[in-house]
Design a protein around this nucleic acid. Structure first.
Lengths: 71, 71
DNA sequence: ACAATATGTCAACTATATCTTGCAATAAGA
DNA sequence: TCTTATTGCAAGATATAGTTGACATATTGT
């Protein structure tokens, strides 16, 4: 499940994946995979992304139709 | 920083750490460390915990005074 | 005092998030 | 066409999330 909300929040801030990655302290690949959806980031990284994009966890990482309850 | 909101949501549901851990698919140690605050869980685990406790990410894992922007 | 339940903690292990490097593909501009 | 910027993807390495098992410490009930 691609994280389209994250991508939209990023482009709305006019940031590239690499710029966001720099601000958040990870590599652009990590951001890319989170947006692509085949990834399970840590909470601290999610929070850092939210703060970089002026959003909250629910804004970017919460979906009403959550996929599975796997850890 | 201890996650007191998580602990309160759990006891409000009358669940022990072990019961919550079972429902979420992790060990009780993992739940314990998240509540103790010296841990950085994955997003999927946070979501599973939220669903088990009928809360959202912002409810349990978002704080206005976020500690550090480390990943 | 005793037993059972719930939690904290520690060490060693396994699984996986994240990094590093590199290459390919696409789109936009000169 | 050529270049540059942006993104996708993949293999191997490292850091850390999560497991397992065990023991200690409350706490509560009998």
């Amino acid at each position: 499940m691609k994280n389209i909300k994250l991508k939209m929040a990023r482009v709305e801030k006019d940031l590239t994946q690499e710029e966001l990655a720099d601000r958040v302290g990870v590599t652009r690949q990590t951001i890319g995979m989170i947006e692509a959806g085949n990834y399970n980031p840590t909470l601290n990284l999610c929070i850092a992304i939210c703060k970089a994009l002026d959003r909250t966890l629910d804004d970017l990482f919460w979906a009403e139709d959550q996929p599975e309850t796997d850890n």
